[in-house]
Amino acid sequence: MIFQPAIIALLLAAGLSLAMLLIAAPFAAQVIRHWDIASGSERQLRLERLTYLFSTLVAFVCLIQILAALLFVFNADKMSVMFVGAMCAVGALNVNEFGFPALYLQLALFFLAALWLALNHADSRARDYPLVKLKYALLLAAIPLFAASLALQMQYFLGLKADVITSCCGSMFSADAPTLASEVGALAPGPAFIVFYGAIGAAVGLAAWHWRRRDDLSGYATGLGALAAFVACIAGILAFVSLYIYEHPNHHCPFCILKPDYEYRGYGLYIPLFAAAAAGMSAGVLRLFARRPSLAQVVPPLTARLAATAAIGYVAFALIASLMIWQSKLILIE
């Protein structure tokens, strides 16, 4: 194990999140069992008060997950000097088989927490709190995921050995490596361009449609569109956006763009991208509950707003990416 402050901080964050959820678990179970909104009994009043604690707690955990995901990548990048063959985060994450799963789970937890907060937001605006049991069931269901996140990070950090020779972005995303990432990286720039801008255009269009129509179909479409566009955008970053930033025809790497060598431009891409994806997907999920009587007035304006956020986020992302491509000296397509 490499004993480093950032690593301890990450483990602390994962542990703290898990501990808070574990402490909250029995109360969540109580809410699920005894919730009765019509009652004015003291127990019900107590449970209602508990819901404030939970929303604050989950908001806090969500914040921790966002920052921890950033810190995780940031730290992996810094650690790369310690491993032979590692030039950036990819190399450090590849040191053992737990690096990438830990990162993916971290990102998944971010999206889950964001979805939960969207549900919570809608629920707490409906006078009878219609989603309360669902919310707390989800919370209980998420606890194993948080535990898994902590376990994966532990495994990853415990398994770090400085003398390991690892493979970095050069081999992982290069055309001849047998990985999915490399297949994406090897996409010809032409088709990749079309998929990238096509998916963003579709997501923005669907979101705009939902903003106007505010119905179920457009809502679900917005959610799926946002998810698809997220995948397409990550693929696009791998396939060509990163090349333009590095001004190098073969350097496909989604992490190096976060480095100071490239003026931290990656953050300019990822922040709008993640915000847009989270907002769009939340709109789709919330739409599932639009038919509940007490939510009928709450959900439509909320999903419309989320759709607008997603559209703005994707447009911002596309503009920033295009600007970076335009400013680059690299020429991929004549």
């Binding site: 402050p5 950032a6 810094k78």
Partner: peptide
């Protein structure tokens, strides 16, 4: 940057968790 982020994790988070 990493250092500041780490310090933030070490101080602000325990504080917040404690007062929640």
């Amino acid at each position: 940057g990493l250092q500041i982020a780490t310090l933030f994790f070490f101080t602000v988070f325990p504080y917040t968790a404690a007062v929640l």
